[in-house]
Amino acid sequence: MLKINNLHVKLEEEDKQILKGVDLEVPAGAVHAIMGPNGSGKSTLSYVLSGKDGYVVTEGSATLEGQDLLDLEPDERAAAGLFLAFQYPVEIPGVGNMTFLRTALNSQRKARGEEELSATDFLKMIREKAKALKIDAEMLKRPVNVGFSGGEKKRNEILQMAMLEPRMCILDETDSGLDVDAMKLVSEGVNALRDKGRAFLVITHYQRLLDHIKPDVVHIMADGRIVKSGGPELALEVEHNGYAGILAEMA
């Protein structure tokens, strides 16, 4: 599904290399996790994949089912099936959550040459999906993320994911700012979307999210590279020994 080859990325504004040769392959149906200390380049990887300005790819490639991602505009990447659940979901005053979701969904459908969803079908769909995430009608009516609690914002991200039905989901520190109950709710939302045609890349500092969203493979990222990969037990090792322990062990 997602193939990243020797990806090198630097900041546009200053000569600072952030990613220094990332290699990663996430097959369809799989859940991969990326863990790593602060500043290792995890979030940069998610931004570069989704097309945020401010980064320059100096070497390497990233493809989604064979399609070159790096050449596409952010909206084209979304239409191709990529979704990033933001670490800090953006508040957009004046844009209703429903309008936002419907415009996004229909833009993607249009880009893929599919018929736009009617207002009735859209309502039906969103009511059903919102219910599972305990998002009430009031929250759907409010402007996007405005006045939402940390947990509500993350649930709203998962709702968007459920509505847009991407093939490749990247979750950037979705556990940050969540209490235990909210984490459970969000994880259930993610698990409900697990499917043999869909892949997940879960970026997190902590092992605890991975108790709820069980990964097939765990990667450790440090200083702009994937330095170690393994099974779910790698996450437990991080929990017990810390990143310093793992990195020291490798040195």
């Binding site: 097309g51 990447r77 979304a78 979901p89 957009i92 415009t103 833009s107 847009l164």
Partner: peptide, 19 residues
């Protein structure tokens, strides 16, 4: 905000109009 909207699939002009 513009990037957030575009990352959800809205082309730049549609995202701009919404903002």
């Amino acid at each position: 905000a513009l990037f957030y909207l575009r990352s959800r699939g809205m082309p730049e002009h549609i995202a701009t109009d919404l903002l």
